[in-house]
């Protein structure tokens, strides 16, 4: 059992939970993830990013968007409640070195997995340009934490409600044209954003790492549901990734695969939303 030590709502559909997980906190490195189960009898297993960890406290921080049954259930939990099953840390850690100048792009919920990578890049002595993007102002997360780590921070929103009115690829292209150009790029966010970022840096030949979040059942290499095509070869996101060379990833195939259970997910999502709303309404009178 993993007791919840802290809960925050970071944006409309984005929540932060700091939970007890001493073994994972001790072993985890930037770029790794966990598999979470809200109910071990009938619950699904879902991959979530480790956004931060505190080994001395024995805790890890999970940040997630409410998109399915488990994330909606997690959002109804409070401090003192417990999550029954968390497996990890999983996946290969990010390859960190002193590249020189690194540009890090985070879109939407992708800012969460970017956070530990930026911490590690900073600790390795890189100069950091951080570009954050969100659909709209109140979906933007972790701006303060990023501002503390970044040497330069560029924020944009799709609707212009905050920062620049632009997609992240616009400032990314500008950064790529600077002299000297950045030595390294990491981009994490929705698949379409990562694809666009990879296409943006490709002509500049800037090595670009993306972190993929695909459908998984076990998260340990057993099911192959997470497989993607990278450089013409089939790779498993859970054990070969989650990070890959963005210039080699077949994003189109990955996006199709992500929609495999769309119908079932849409039905479940609607139901979950109603349940989350209900839980909120039920809490209100006593609050």
């Amino acid at each position: 059992m993993h007791r919840i030590l802290e809960k925050q709502q970071l944006a409309d559909e984005v929540f932060l939970l700091r939970v007890e997980a001493p073994l994972i906190a001790r072993e985890r490195k930037a770029g790794q993830f966990v598999m979470v189960q809200a109910d071990t009898r009938f619950g699904e297993r879902i991959p979530l990013t480790i956004a931060d960890a505190n080994p001395s406290e024995g805790s890890i921080t999970l940040i997630f968007q409410t998109v399915g049954k488990t994330t909606h259930h997690l959002a109804t939990l409070n401090v003192g409640d417990a999550i029954p099953a968390i497996l990890g840390p999983l996946g290969r850690p990010t390859h960190i070195e002193t590249f020189g100048t690194a540009v890090a792009v985070g879109g939407g919920i992708g800012i969460a997995p970017l956070h530990p990578i930026i911490q590690a890049l900073k600790a390795a002595g890189n100069r950091l340009i951080v570009i954050l993007g969100a659909r709209t102002r109140n979906l933007l997360i972790l701006e303060d934490q990023m501002a503390r780590l970044a040497d330069e921070l560029i924020v944009c929103t799709d609707d212009g409600s905050y920062g620049r009115k632009a997609l992240v690829t616009e400032p990314l292209r500008e950064v790529c044209t600077r002299v000297p150009a950045p030595d390294f790029c990491v981009a994490i966010g929705p698949p379409i954003m990562m694809k666009a970022c990879a296409e943006t840096t490709r002509p500049f030949r800037i090595p670009t790492v993306v972190s993929l979040n695909t459908i998984m059942v076990d998260g340990t290499g057993m099911c192959g549901g997470c497989r993607v095509t990278v450089g013409g070869k089939t790779r498993f996101v859970c054990v070969d990734g989650p990070e890959f060379d963005g210039h080699q990833v077949d994003f189109d195939n990955m996006m199709l695969r992500l929609r495999a259970y769309k119908e079932q997910e849409d039905a479940a999502h609607h139901q979950c939303h109603l349940e989350l709303e209900l839980a909120r309404l039920e809490r209100k009178p006593s609050a």
């Binding site: 073994l23 968390i86 497996l87 990890g88 840390p89």
Partner: peptide, 8 residues
Amino acid sequence: NFLVGRTR
């Protein structure tokens, strides 16, 4: 929920 090789 303990993967030897990763959890420890």
